[in-house]
């Protein structure tokens, strides 16, 4: 449309137009009711004042910083596989970390404590878990556990199911071939 295009062209003149529109909006508002269009224009310059810009920048920067600090610190090595965790056992000490493996057939539940072992590439680790396992937890499922070594046993305080991106109906023969990534 002609009007819009003509408004596109002159860079210098569009700025004072917007500025005076702001000013007139502020001038008109104490009088009668505020018409919808000026309200929308002001909404667009929601962060027009320096104070609001500082607040918005602080909020966004805090959100980004929080995500970066929380996540990217350990995101590149999210978990260790059982063989890696066993090999690093002495250097890990009692440090909190994540371990990944497939749950073996020896799940036993006594009170709030679940004991089982997990295996990855034929290396097995004993696990003691004190929190209730998630609903999909069962033998044969790959899991990521959070916790630390207590001697040769992994003391887990969080079980997470690491399901694959394979999807099959329960009766499908492929259902039994689900393996971890």
């Amino acid at each position: 449309m002609a009007v819009t295009d003509s408004a596109d062209a002159p860079t210098a003149s569009s700025s004072p137009a917007a500025a005076s529109a702001e000013a007139s909006g502020a001038g008109a508002s104490p009088g009668a009711g505020v018409p919808p269009a000026p309200r929308l224009v002001r909404r667009r310059a929601l962060l027009g004042s320096r104070r609001r810009q500082v607040i918005a920048a602080a909020v966004v920067a805090a959100a980004i910083a929080f995500v970066v600090v929380e996540g990217l610190g350990n995101a590149t090595e999210y978990y260790k596989t059982v063989p890696q965790a066993v090999a690093d056992r002495s250097s890990l000490g009692t440090r909190h970390f994540r371990i990944m493996g497939t749950v073996d057939d020896d799940v036993r539940q006594v009170g709030n404590t679940t004991t089982f072992s997990i295996t990855y590439e034929r290396v097995t680790a004993q696990v003691v878990d004190t929190k209730e396992p998630p609903q999909l937890f069962k033998p044969g499922v790959p899991v990521v556990l959070e916790g630390s070594w207590a001697g040769n046993v992994f003391q887990s305080d969080l079980i997470m199911i690491k399901h694959t991106s394979n999807y099959t109906p329960p009766t499908d023969p492929y259902a039994t071939t689900q393996t971890s990534k």
Binding site: P35, A37, V41
Partner: peptide
């Protein structure tokens, strides 16, 4: 854009 640039 129109309302912003063409005023009220």
């Amino acid at each position: 854009d129109r309302f912003e640039e063409e005023g009220f």
